[in-house]
Design a protein around this nucleic acid. Structure first.
Lengths: 335, 335
DNA sequence: CTGAAAGCGCTTACAG
DNA sequence: CTGAAAGCGCTTACAG
């Protein structure tokens, strides 16, 4: 079945016109006599001709491909954002192909993949990160192609960005706890991230505004897996009695909740818990997990849309977008 | 910062050699005088030259890019498999770029994306589907580039495939229920899929081998969202009293479990539940959800590895791989 | 409206 | 070991 690949030459010959004419009807880039256009179209159809996008990319110096760089594709929130990115990239008016790289939160890998994307002549790059160094930030800022940063905490004022206000989100959560009269509010986070810094800032701001003391030991680094977190929580709660938990990780929040229940600690009466991201799991556990929700899919859509605008040199009123977040109240809190 | 893009010509001129020589050191494709090689390498370094992969692809007639077609990128299991695919594609010896398309279980979209991938001159394609038509299956079988089907139920004997034995998995689950003396075993599934057909076959085989009657009304089509499934389960369990549930969907399994608990039905004493895929959520809910586990990440790794072998024309002892599945027992069953 | 020709940035026989 | 040249499959001024 592997018949010789048919090219624009075949179409031209078969239709009795020049390459240029075929190219013109293909791209609707110039007027072509209706009858010739008809013939060409007919031949294209008959030969089932599909232009070679690689050759096209070389000739045009545009690949109609964008690169996407994410810290971890296996994360549910990331997959959901990719979903928004892909849906948008493939819309009628865009039709960009997407080269996706997952750099495992490894900044050396990030650099390699970044170069790879540029070698592949992508027209633009979508970048997400948990944590970033000045060196990498500079690399991105000096990119030869347009870049949009999404779902990441960055203080750069030259980068286009679609994200949420992490600081405010954690301020809101902490404020709720403090207003409820709690003193010992645990702040749980998984790994060292830039988002973490600003989330922590929100946590601390709520404390200072309430004139309550921040206890360093209440800022906890948790594990990646549920099992580890459960074991840790079980041990922790056996001796310490926090009033509330704000967690950046679903898995840790649920581990603490289950450990508490197993220790006879009542939720939310004796311990309130709020988590971040509002994944599907939050509503499936009992009691339901109160969680900060933000438009994950939409962030994917918006960032891709923003990137296409920049790639087309459209006028932008602004290049920094902050999506709203909202706390979804469930049984793990008293409210 | 947008200095003129530097090309192989610049390197050749600067190093005082021909294009061909630069190309040779770039690709290590032929012997080059050590001293010239040294100069070229030095110039490449100094100019920070990166070959244009698009031009390279055109000249070589190989793009070093593979296409990946999945029904829904936002699904956790899919994201996990992509994780395995990407990790493998980027390994030292492979270095394939990945063009990823999510076709929303829409077979027309599938066809469009399939053509897009071919237009982009991918060297091979990785395909996953829930359901497939003869037309599409034929299209894949006649692909001009190598294809590997993964995590999909197919009866094609010409396609290379990495998957699990869905039939056996559901036989195993159903058999456990029947051996435990149950009669009314619900079979819950989300949408019409090819996997479903074979899963259902396993379910029915267990029944016939046990000489127990299959009740058509026990085969249930469930919803996509947890909320809908919960509402449905609440209503269902108010009147009917199944002994056990085998569900292809986590969300439905958990919805039934929570609805049962809310109705005072004891789990697992009065109702046993087993689900499919063993997602992270299965271990977080209370009681834990017994689930069929299979090596999701590994399927991604294996299918990508298989594809590279085929792309390189390596000898294959076989092209059909069935990964083992296993039931992870938790609190939703008596065992 | 149309075609011949140059060019996109590489690789690869071919000849030496 | 090395270079000149053709070619990969398109697009796009340019001239008519």
């Amino acid at each position: 079945m592997k018949n010789k690949k048919i090219t624009i030459y075949d179409v031209a010959r078969e239709a009795g016109v020049s390459l240029a004419t075929v190219s013109r009807v293909l791209n609707k880039s110039a007027k072509v006599a209706p009858e010739k256009e008809q013939v060409v179209l007919e031949v294209i159809e008959r030969l089932n001709y599909r232009p070679n996008e690689v050759a096209r990319g070389l000739a045009r110096k545009r690949s109609t491909t964008v690169g996407v760089l994410v810290p971890e594709i296996g994360r549910l929130s990331v997959a959901e954002m990719l979903s928004g990115i892909l849906d948008t990239a493939n819309m009628e008016m865009y039709k960009y192909s997407t080269l996706i790289k997952s750099y495992a939160s490894d900044l050396d890998l990030f650099k390699t993949y970044w170069e790879d994307l540029l070698s592949n002549q992508v027209d633009g790059i979508l970048v997400m990160f948990d944590y970033i160094t000045d060196e990498i930030q500079e690399m991105i800022e000096n990119s030869p192609v347009p870049v949009v940063v999404f779902a990441s905490a960055t203080d750069s004022d030259v980068l286009a960005c679609v994200s949420i206000n992490y600081e405010q989100a954690f301020y809101d959560v902490t404020k709720y706890f403090l207003d409820a009269g709690h003193e010992d509010v645990l702040f749980c986070t998984r790994n060292y991230t830039s988002a973490l810094e600003v989330q922590k800032h929100g946590y601390m701001r709520a404390f200072s505004e309430s004139n309550k003391p921040i206890k360093e030991e209440n800022i906890l680094r948790v594990y990646r897996s549920y099992e580890e977190n459960y074991a840790f929580a079980k041990e922790y709660l056996a001796t310490k009695k926090p009033d509330a938990i704000a967690s950046t990780s679903d898995s840790a929040a649920i581990a603490f909740m289950n450990a508490a229940l197993d220790l006879g600690i009542q939720i939310p009466e004796q311990l309130e818990i709020i988590s971040f991201s509002n994944t599907k799991t939050s509503q499936m556990v009992r009691p339901g997990l109160t969680s900060v929700s933000y438009p994950i899919y939409k962030i994917g859509v918006f960032s891709m849309r923003l990137l296409t605008k920049i790639m087309r040199n459209e006028e932008l009123e602004k290049k920094n977008f902050t999506e709203a977040h909202e706390i979804i109240w469930r049984g793990s809190t008293k409210k």
